[in-house]
Design a binder for these strands. Structure first.
Length: 569
RNA sequence: GGACCCGUCGCCUAGCACGGAUAGGGCACCGGAUUUCUAAUCCGGCUGUCGAGGGUUCGAAUCCCUCCGGGUCCGCCA
């Protein structure tokens, strides 16, 4: 475990770079960059030294290229103003593929790190089913959990259950007082509840008696009425159960849950209030922190933590929650919607004001909107994640049925589910989190080109070859000199560092892009290099080894994104 | 009004943190490849003032400034 051939190659190239610099007697260090595919593995731009040596980059490159490189690099080549590092195919193939062989199925993972990471994601309020506008959160969060684990971090995934606040009280009231529509055929509880919630929400407009009722309940609730808290929590638990069921369908699970009501019941919210009191200012009986000077001004700088009636606010509970987190990890990562940006800026400022030298890391994502605007559960303008999943699986089934009449029904269903779910996840995760997405059915259900089935298909192809091979037989890796074999080996080499850098930079989409490129390279190899029919036997064996290595890379890349790699499709 | 984010072929998108070789993909459209390991594949064609302008630099999609367009936020809501 833990081999990283690309970094190994880069280190060797850096060694050569230093030799070049001492030969040239230059003091400015050059920057080793990855070379375009047809110019070797790495390159140095000689422009860097032109000023210092007072000659042209091209002539410097020529001089530099006389330096003898180390294995597996071939003699350096000057091409225009660049010094290119190409490799000798045979030792290159051996270096990379022996690394894969010794790591086996774990190739791509990095050695354990000491940081404990607590990664919070999704944390949707338990007031209704998960909708697509929120779906970015679990897909991004879960993929990051997986990739960080592969990169060696010790990661705990957590869901903050927000069972406090007016929304929860209103849902509780609706469930307790409104009759369910007897013709309602919905089986799942959160779908039935959300309809009651929408009704109550509509009724609230202009109904003063109900408004007062909800206010009274809210006060009792937040004042610490244990029985009421338990009753409301029961409603929250039911809805959360449904949300988690939806998430399980798309392979998202959690290690732990934190209930906001617990922070009230165990007194930690009260302790936060007492701690903030001396730091706060007063306005009409309410209390706030003045965060002017932390890059905030005006109303944005007022961070209220106690209402006039003495009850806590979301902000207060958020501080309590993050103080709790602080004690449980080295790095806390919160995956949240960009609407929380100001909140977190204030939370971090509040921590500074409290003299706490720690802050959670944040990953903000832009919303998935409908062409007609933002999704809203309250207004009923939503696409539920379950519906998207159902539709994706249906379409995948149609495709599988078309292609694989030979398979038994159950197997076709299984494959359709694998493909449909992956397609939905991949379409979200391939895009940078900060970019806004407009949800369109045709795009969300794309099965061609840059899509999950494209990656899965490459994996299935690899598996299919291996299944037919019946053992590898003799193998000589030095025979893998075909340009497309070499290109594939290069991509295999890059896998571990790609995962590690994506995890360190919290850039999930980088792995999605890598996986697509890799699948593409594998398809080119598949086209150009017959495997089972290859002669001599030692070339066949070597190609089988290459296919197996590709299989491991694809499987682990897909897994890091939370996508299942099917053996056939 | 202020703060933060985004702006790359008709549409979606990578590259930007760390500046270097003709800005990569995909969709759509047109044309081709299947007696060969699954054609959910592959090949060719078409499409780009990298939002605009200025600056820094030998070199800018990438860094800096200004502006424009879009998103998000600025509750004693969560």
């Amino acid at each position: 475990m833990g081999h990283d051939p690309w970094t190994e190659l880069r280190d060797r190239a850096e060694q050569v770079r230093r030799t070049i610099e001492s030969e040239l007697r230059v003091t400015t260090p050059g920057v080793l960059q990855e070379a375009p595919a047809d110019h070797g593995l790495f390159a140095l731009a000689a422009h860097t030294w032109a000023k210092e040596l007072k000659t042209s980059p091209a002539s410097i490159a020529t001089r530099a290229s006389r330096v003898k490189p180390v294995s597996p690099f071939a003699p350096l080549r000057a091409e225009g103003p660049y010094v290119n590092f190409t490799v000798d195919p045979a030792p290159f193939a051996e270096l990379v593929l022996s690394a894969v062989r010794s790591d086996g199925e774990t190739y791509g993972t990095s050695p354990a790190r000491k940081e404990r990471v607590l990664l919070e994601h999704t944390s949707a309020n338990p007031t209704g089913p998960l909708h697509v506008g929120r779906a970015r959160n679990p897909f991004l969060g879960d993929a990051l959990v997986r990739l960080m684990r592969a990169a060696g971090y010790k990661v705990t995934s957590e869901y903050l259950v927000n069972d406090i606040g007016r929304q929860m009280v209103l849902l509780y009231w609706a469930v307790a007082h409104l009759p369910e529509d007897p013709s309602d055929s919905e089986e799942r509880i959160e779908y039935r509840y959300v309809k009651l919630y929408q009704k109550a929400s509509a009724k609230l407009e202009g109904d003063e008696t109900l408004k007062r009722e909800i206010e009274r309940l809210t006060q009792r609730f937040e004042g610490g009425d244990v029985q009421l808290t338990k009753d409301i929590r029961k409603v929250g638990e039911a809805v959360l159960g449904g949300i988690l069921e939806t998430l399980r369908r798309v392979n998202v699970t959690y290690d732990s849950f934190f209930w906001e009501s617990d922070a009230i019941l165990d007194g930690s919210v009260q302790r936060v209030i007492e701690r903030l009191m001396p730091l706060g200012k007063e306005e009409d009986g309410a209390r706030y922190l003045d965060l002017t000077g932390f890059g905030l001004e005006g109303d944005a700088a007022k961070y209220f933590f106690v209402r006039r009636d003495g009850t806590s606010l979301y902000t207060t509970r958020d501080i309590a929650y993050h103080l709790n987190k602080m004690g449980r990890c080295d790095v806390a990562i919160d995956v949240i919607g960009e609407d929380h940006k100001l909140s977190f800026q204030r939370l971090k400022a509040a921590f500074q004001l409290m003299g706490i030298d720690w802050a959670p890391e944040t990953i903000f994502y832009a919303f998935v909107n409908l062409p007609e605007g933002r999704m809203s559960t309250r207004k009923g303008r939503v696409v539920y994640l379950d519906d998207l999943i159902d539709e994706a699986i249906d379409r995948a089934y149609a495709e599988v049925a078309k292609r694989r009449e030979d398979l038994p029904e159950a197997r076709k269903r299984e494959i359709a589910q694998t493909i449909g779910v992956a397609a939905v996840r991949y379409n979200i995760v391939r895009v940078q989190a900060e970019k806004a997405i407009t949800f369109r059915w045709e795009e969300a259900l794309s099965f061609e080109g840059n899509s999950a089935p494209f990656l899965q298909y490459a994996h299935a192809r690899a598996c299919s070859i291996l299944a037919k091979a019946d053992g590898h037989g003799p193998s000589d890796l030095r025979l893998l000199v075909h340009p497309q074999e070499q290109m594939l080996i290069r991509w295999i080499a890059k896998f571990p560092s790609t995962v590690r850098e994506a995890a360190e930079g919290r850039r999930v989409h980088a792995v999605a892009g890598y996986a697509a490129d890799f699948a593409s390279q594998f398809n080119l190899f598949y086209r150009d290099c017959p495997v089972l029919a290859a002669e001599p036997a030692s070339l066949r064996g070597a190609r089988l080894g290459l296919v197996d290595a590709s299989r491991v890379v694809l499987r682990n890349a897909l897994d890091g994104l939370g996508l299942t790699a099917p053996k056939e499709m």
